[in-house]
Design a protein around this nucleic acid. Structure first.
Lengths: 263, 263
DNA sequence: CGAGAGCTTGATTGGGATCAAGGAAAGTGG
DNA sequence: CCACTTTCCTTGATCCCAATCAAGCTCTCG
């Protein structure tokens, strides 16, 4: 159908810079399956084997079930992203849309078999996988070592980078995910997410408008709170410790983060 | 030197099934740097850019610094493993040996540039990256959603799979990492690791001999405790809930794991 | 064998989960 | 457009698992 053709061609050109008529392009096209998801819909995937997904437009969450009421969101994905979905192994993975989404689904094995035949495609995929792995590692650091406030600040920082609008240090975020999704992504409950957002709001670091819009007043402050300690000073470094207590007495331990949170 | 040549040739043959004399092999060889590490030594890496490492023999930990006294071990690697080390970005990463280790270091960008030119190499790398990513995601699930006992059981299960010896359901683990390393990997303190190991020992599920040897009596029990819920029933499934309290009154919440641990 | 690092065990504390109400948004039907 | 409904979000009170603090113990190695 026309829709499938069009989105596939865009996929080949934007993701790999390869014309869809190339040999690998035709092979990939043969195994592509286009899907359109409503606002909150799980993508139908064969769970027996891994899949590779391309998000044409929209937003999705990649989640793992740990048990009936324990879900860990492993990654969020937005338009233009390519990622692989593990087959059900130790955990059961699923992809769900956060808003209306169009995507392409490939079976992982033949996809990689074919992709490796074209240097441009395999080079791009290796780079994207490396990015995904590094994001996942940073998430592991957050989940293993950071407290609730640091995790939330890290989340806001990452979202500002990926879907934020606005210039300078001020960023506007229209988050497609619910508080529950944020909590499931950060290993926190919705109550804790709400409380920490409230703390940031009271401290004057963010504004919230409605349910989905969050305005970051100064990205530097958020970056500072997130407990990152590499050399990525994208914006200007902050000298003095920012103290959430400056506005109001708050039971938030910013200055003394724990070794490993509480679990 | 001879050592470097020999280990590089082994690398090409075992990792990719490609003769070192192939064109891509010669290019890779030119950028390879062989290192030998003592028992507990940090690998000297240029942190400005990502590196790709191949472990010829030995064992290493890949760790991220979150702050002065918060370290998250992101992965352990053993002989034959290939993995990429992120450049310092949000966090600062380092690779350290757990025992005497020989390895090859490549700068990531030219390594991937070159690797993508050979379909056999890029195919193998895509597969390894996919495995690394899936391991990291499973770790994220553990860190975000599981309690101390489940994490430790998951760790033992994974180690039994990777470096365990013995047949049937009984597995012998000679762990090269310390309790601190285990704790840093699971987002727990050494005390908690020790307590949970003690609980497993008292419950008769494991034996400990000296500091490094752990014998898993029945891998099924450990798998069951780890809270995995996919379809990977490698060994036989267990019907009844195993109850740690059967041996002694223990304050261990096995039956009622929490939503997200405590942080 | 002795020193010291690494491990174990106990007592207490604390951060975030859980339990429990309310309150604001978004959707629905009249 | 407005009541009604529902879902999602916020805020408060209490509880609990794992962190922290504090001794001892035990391997390992020189």
């Amino acid at each position: 159908m026309m829709t499938e053709l069009a989105s596939f061609d865009i996929f080949m050109r934007t993701a790999f810079g390869v014309e869809p008529a190339a040999r690998a392009g035709l092979q990939l096209k043969a195994m592509a399956e286009a899907k359109c998801l409503g606002p909150h819909e799980e993508a139908p995937l064969g769970k027996r084997e891994s899949n590779v997904l391309y998000i044409g437009s929209g937003a999705t969450k990649l989640a793992a079930r740990a048990s009936d009421n324990r879900e860990q969101i492993v990654a969020f994905h937005f338009g233009g992203d390519i990622f692989s979905v593990p087959a059900d192994d130790l955990h059961s993975y699923s992809v769900s849309s956060l808003e209306p989404t169009s995507l392409l689904v490939f079976p992982a094995r033949p996809f990689f078999d074919c992709a490796s035949s074209d240097p441009r495609i395999s080079r791009a995929l290796l780079e994207r996988q490396r990015t995904a792995l590094h994001r996942c590692r940073d998430k592991a650091v957050a989940l293993g070592q950071k407290n609730a406030l640091e995790r939330l600040a890290g989340f806001l920082f990452a979202m500002a980078d990926r879907i934020g609008t606005g210039s300078g240090v001020r960023r506007i975020l229209d988050l497609p995910m619910s508080r529950r999704d944020i909590g499931d992504s950060l290993g926190l409950t919705i109550e804790t997410v709400s409380r920490q957002l409230g703390a940031l709001r009271k401290a004057g670091l963010i504004e919230t408008h409605g349910r989905s819009r969050i305005v970051v007043r100064d990205l530097n402050d958020i970056a500072h709170l997130s407990g990152h300690c590499g050399k990525s000073e994208r914006t200007e470094p902050i000298e003095a410790d920012f103290d959430l207590d400056q506005c109001e007495r708050l039971p938030v331990g910013v200055a003394r983060p724990q070794t490993g949170g509480q679990s």
